[in-house]
Amino acid sequence: MSTDTALGAAYRRLDGLSTEVKGALVALPPIAYLTLFFVVPLFSILNYSVRVQRELQITGEFTLAHYAEVLTSGTFQGALFYSVRVALVTTALALIVGTPVGYYLATEVGDRLRNVLLFLVIAPLWINFFVRAYAIIQIGGARGFLNGTLLAVGLVDEPIQWFVYSQPSVIFGLTTLWLPLMVLPIYALLRQMDTAWLEAARDLGAGPLRVHREVTLPAALPGIILGSLFVFLLSLGNQAVPRILGGAKRTTYSETILLQLESGGLNWPVASAASGVMMAFVIVVLLGVFSVFDMEELF
């Protein structure tokens, strides 16, 4: 039997299958992949979080003590508060900067310039963040360009320290990192907006600001929600930026989790419970957003 007929026979057999079976066959590889590398680790973490650990060994004993520890610990509470605050401020900044950029790209520029500007918006995503973070340090450091200029002009007598290794510099780093993810969905939504809507609103008596409130904002809203979710959630869990730009103190929630595993303790159950708390927090945020806004409208 030649390979040709063998292949033909295989095709014929596949053809005979029902649509459901064919669909299942197509879906099988990604499902297997996700199960192996996402679902299994997820459940093992959740499993660790409710087990007693003795002499670095996870036992079969059930306990909720780790959750109680995480929830009552000042360190974890402070870290969660810090991370949420940084993520919120980052989201707000990205919104303030990203919305006008998205609007401008979608409505004000010609096709050629738009392509160039879109490329510039997306380009940073291709540049390794460490390179950009060190550039920020170069610019904002004590001997950097910014302080150098301020000193030369005489606005300050000594370098401003909080330009780097500080909460503001973490927020700045996160904002520049995720800004494209705010701009792009807003841009995409406003691209679909008909500028005639703006003219109609003006014609019906809406002043310049009112036009944006009544027409632009509703048109951009799904993009604003989506972009904000991206920026907030990615900032919340980000570890690289605070580590490079945040200075020696390891104050974020994810760093606090890591410390459980590093400082000689290898405290898997508490680290897992802390992860569980974060997961619950994210799920609550998502459910909250999706209960107010229609999922279908967002995606």
């Binding site: 809507w197 014609d203 009544e214 509703p218 048109a219």
Partner: peptide
Amino acid sequence: SMVFQDLALFPH
């Protein structure tokens, strides 16, 4: 007041 060629109704 203007009635636009493509109407320009507010979809939202």
